[in-house]
């Protein structure tokens, strides 16, 4: 692949980053190719030194925050005509509720993703609570209170269960984090890295 071809393809593949960022990247790679060629590489060798376009695109996607991708996508590329502006104002009762709905759905989805984690943590806390109550009950007995075997027994069970259940909590939290990260990456890839 020659220099011009490389730059053209990279430009085409890197959607969703600002024009300024794109131009800076392109001029950086272009300078690099020129310098590599000046130091004895052929044009083809210099281009292949930079790694494959796929790799570059992947790296750019993972480095760009999701928010700035969305912003870049929402920002209109050209200035709007008067007719378009009027249409947007008139269409407000239609698109505004739709926008709110979409945002609410996204929020709900995100909360749902974490609901499992919240639930297991609540259970874990209740186990620890029961264990604690058992300990308190036992000490109450030592200091002359009534012997409440049920509370002490429940406390022991709670204590026993809280330990392995802690691992369930940790595992689920890690898993959920991973899923939410991979969803963010998928969204970004959809916006940015299209062939």
């Amino acid at each position: 692949m020659g220099k011009q071809e490389f730059i053209k393809e990279l430009k085409g593949r890197l959607k969703g980053i600002s024009d300024k960022d794109l131009n800076e990247r392109i001029s950086f790679y272009s300078e690099m190719i020129d310098d590599l060629m000046e130091n004895g590489k052929t044009e083809e060798e210099a281009v292949s030194e930079l790694g494959s376009i796929d790799e570059i695109v992947k790296q750019v996607i993972s480095e760009t925050p999701l928010l700035s991708v969305v912003k870049e996508k929402i920002r209109p590329k050209k200035t709007m005509s008067t007719a378009e502006k009027i249409l947007i104002v008139l269409g407000f009762p239609v698109w505004f509720p739709l926008l709110i709905t979409v945002l609410a759905l996204a929020f709900t989805f995100y909360v749902l993703l974490w609901v499992g984690v919240i639930v297991v943590y609540s259970v874990e806390i209740s186990f620890i609570g029961v264990a604690f109550a058992g300990v308190v009950g036992f000490f109450a007995y030592l200091f002359g209170g009534e012997l409440n075997l049920i509370s002490i027994g429940a406390g022991l069970i709670g204590l026993g269960l809280s330990v392995p259940f802690y691992y369930v909590c940790a595992y689920l939290t890690k898993g959920t984090l991973k899923v939410s990260r991979s969803i963010a990456l998928k969204i970004k890839t959809r916006f940015m890295g299209k062939k």
């Binding site: 800076e24 990247r25 950086f28 790679y29 690099m32 030194e49 930079l50 790694g51 790799e55 570059i56 790296q59 750019v60 480095e63």
Partner: peptide, 10 residues
């Protein structure tokens, strides 16, 4: 790598 250097410089 060249791409990494760009990110660092930025």
């Amino acid at each position: 790598s060249e791409s990494t250097l760009y990110t660092i410089l930025k």
